[in-house]
């Protein structure tokens, strides 16, 4: 005898506007936004790190707010506009924030970088000249185990056209 298959929650159709493009996706309620964006929409720029809201690698913008895609149910984002790291560059031309990250060597292994870029994008959108303290506060949710943060901090200063960039000694 085959045991009856345990009934599962039904799939539902949600509409996500990702980087300006509308997607209709059938998902179960337990699907996390990060998995939908990576596996169903195919935008793998957003990284899945700790899956518990501790590292910030999965940061993307939901209606302009930096949020954690690993702690957000996709079904809760029905009808919302999502912006991922793929949307920052205009074709081959990088955004000023991405250019600053390259200039300052703020990328080493690169796993935290998409989340960092999205946090910085949200910061600069609401505050074009953030103070040192505001930069640190905006990036406190993004962990980086390679750079020691100073290069990233310098990159934000460069992207916002501010002084105070300290050379990093190797």
């Amino acid at each position: 005898m085959i045991e009856a298959v345990k009934s599962r929650s039904r799939k539902r159709l949600i509409t996500l506007t990702v980087n300006g493009e509308e997607h209709e996706i059938a998902i179960r309620p337990n699907a996390m936004l990060v998995d939908v964006v990576r596996d169903q929409i195919g935008l793998t720029g957003t990284k899945s790190g700790c899956s518990s809201g501790s590292c910030g690698a999965c940061t993307l913008l939901i209606d302009g707010r930096p949020m954690l895609a690993c702690s957000t149910l996709a079904v809760e984002c029905d009808g919302k506009a999502i912006r991922t790291v793929e949307d920052l560059a205009d074709g081959e031309r990088l955004s000023p924030i991405q250019e600053a990250f390259l200039d300052q060597g703020a990328v080493q292994c690169g796993f935290c970088t998409p989340g960092m870029l999205m946090s910085v994008t949200a910061l600069i959108a609401s505050n074009p000249k953030p103070s040192h303290q505001e930069i640190k506060k905006a990036l406190e949710g993004n962990l980086c185990r390679c750079t020691g943060y100073n290069a990233i901090f310098n990159a934000v200063l460069q992207a916002t056209g501010q002084d105070g960039i300290k050379p990093i000694m190797f």
Binding site: G56, P66, A138, L139, E140, G141
Partner: peptide, 8 residues
């Protein structure tokens, strides 16, 4: 928490 936590 962090900025992302406070936004949610």
């Amino acid at each position: 928490g962090s900025n992302q936590i406070r936004q949610a």
